[in-house]
Design a protein around this nucleic acid. Sequence first.
DNA 1: GAGTCGTGGGA
DNA 2: TTCCCAAGACT
Length: 365
Amino acid sequence: MNLELDDLYNKFQQFSIDLFQDDLINWFLQEKRSLPWRENQDPYRVWVSEIMLQQTKVDTVIPFYNRFMERFPTIQALAEADEQDVLKAWEGLGYYSRARNLQNAVREVATVYDGQVPANAEELGKLKGVGPYTTGAILSIAYGIPQPAVDGNVMRVLSRILFITEDIAKPKTRKIFEAAVEKMISQEDPSSFNQGLMELGALICTPKKPACMLCPVQEHCAAFKQGIQEELPIKSKGKKQRTKPYLSVIVENEKGELLIEQRPEEGLLASLWQFPMADATEVTIEQLAYWFKLEYGLEIKVEETLLPVRHVFSHIIWEVIVLRATTVSDGEVPDKGRFVSREDIANYPFPVPHQKIIQQIHIPE
DNA sequence: GAGTCGTGGGA
DNA sequence: TTCCCAAGACT
């Protein structure tokens, strides 16, 4: 590590940190986008935005953020909310553990810290869902504390500017960039410095075809000097997704209600709702009614096969064959899940693949 | 440290 | 179609 640090610091021999800070910050103050979470520096608003922005594009986040802040305007409001309502507000945004971790952490701030978001890395970083990046982002943006906030943008931008060739897909590589930012960050305006690096990555120093001719720090960029900006950063490839086949059945009772169930509290799509789903490597369409009887304790009659649903996750692909079925006896209560009217289904948080299924059942035959 | 955890958009 | 990606954290 000392070797790597020495190597890093050598890169600053011919590098003017002061001029770089000025060029970056002036550009940011001039060109920064007007975004909902930039209206003020309320630590709660900054916090929510940073959680939503994890692995998620700005354009995607904006409408979710506005709805969320309207519904849960304060730490108090979010702390007192029902978890299901929070998940409903998060519906469609993905990475749902973010929502549950956020509420968990907000509740801790409400009780342990008297509603004040901690202004130090030790306490902040212990909150659920607040990792190294988010800690630095909140401290610098909300509190003006000089602390690195190294995300994908920062690693891409600095890999080019400083010619850092470590694989940014490796977790430990982030530490190198944190060391670089610690050395480079403006003590006067760490907020604009950190946000400037990210804004630059989003608008100019993009992954493909960076707009170097428009770059405010072009003259500081080691990669541009050699014309190899497109070769950086170095990033190893991830694995391909595996396909998992499922059978999902929409069971309608005599009252026209549909059977839904809540997913487990841990794992994929935790605590969200869905239609009953069987692993298609273990259950065939012919066995479905029998499987359903075992799992849910109800007799059903499979009526028809609807359109298949395909959904690509980060690491899995779902191939879901969707079936429609009706109950055989009236008024029976299932062992698992609950029958819900079509109108009430809108009140439950569903992941996108099951939203796709819901689309189908409203189509008249 | 590698795997898990969503979604939508663009090349 | 396929691939990569986007302001990461947790286990």
